[in-house]
Simulated scan of single mutants.
Amino acid sequence: MDEAKLRMIPAPLLFPYERLRYAEAGSIVYPPGGRFGPRIQQDIQLVMLYSGEMTITVEGRPLHVKPGQVVLLKPGQEESFVFSRTEDTWHRWIAVNFEALPEATEQALHALPSCLPLSEEMNLLTDLMIMLLRRGSHEDPEVRSLGLAAVQLYPRESQQAQLLTEKHPSVYAALVWIREHYAEDVSLPELSDRAGVSPEHLVRLFKQHEQTTPIQYLWQFRVKRAIELLTNTGLTVTEIAQRCGFKTSHHLARLVKSATGRTATEIRRLSWSGFRSS
Score class of each variant (00 low, 15 high):
Pro32His: 05
Gly33Asp: 01
Gly34Pro: 06
Gly34Asn: 04
Phe36Leu: 12
Pro38Asn: 12
Asp43Arg: 11
Gln45Gly: 05
Leu46Glu: 04
Val47Ala: 07
Val47Met: 08
Val47Asp: 01
Val47Pro: 09
Leu49Arg: 07
Tyr50Asn: 04
Tyr50Thr: 09
Tyr50Val: 02
Tyr50Glu: 07
Tyr50Asp: 11
Ser51Lys: 10
Ser51Arg: 08
Gly52Val: 04
Gly52His: 00
Glu53Ser: 15
Thr55Pro: 08
Thr55Asn: 06
Thr55Ala: 05
Ile56Asp: 06
Thr57Val: 13
Thr57Pro: 03
Thr57Gln: 13
Val58Ile: 15
Glu59Val: 00
Glu59Tyr: 00
Gly60Asn: 05
Arg61Phe: 10
Arg61Met: 12
Arg61Gln: 15
Arg61Lys: 13
Arg61His: 12
Arg61Tyr: 03
Pro62Ile: 07
Pro62Gly: 11
His64Phe: 14
Val65Thr: 14
Val65His: 05
Lys66His: 13
Lys66Glu: 12
Pro67Trp: 01
Gly68Tyr: 06
Gly68Leu: 02
Gly68Lys: 09
Leu73Arg: 06
Gln77Ser: 12
Gln77Ala: 13
Glu78Lys: 11
Glu78His: 09
Ser80Ala: 15
Ser80Tyr: 12
Ser80Asn: 10
Phe83Lys: 08
Ser84Arg: 14
Arg85Cys: 07
Thr86Pro: 01
Asp88Pro: 03
Thr89Cys: 06
Thr89Met: 07
Trp90Asn: 10
Trp90Ser: 10
Trp90Gly: 08
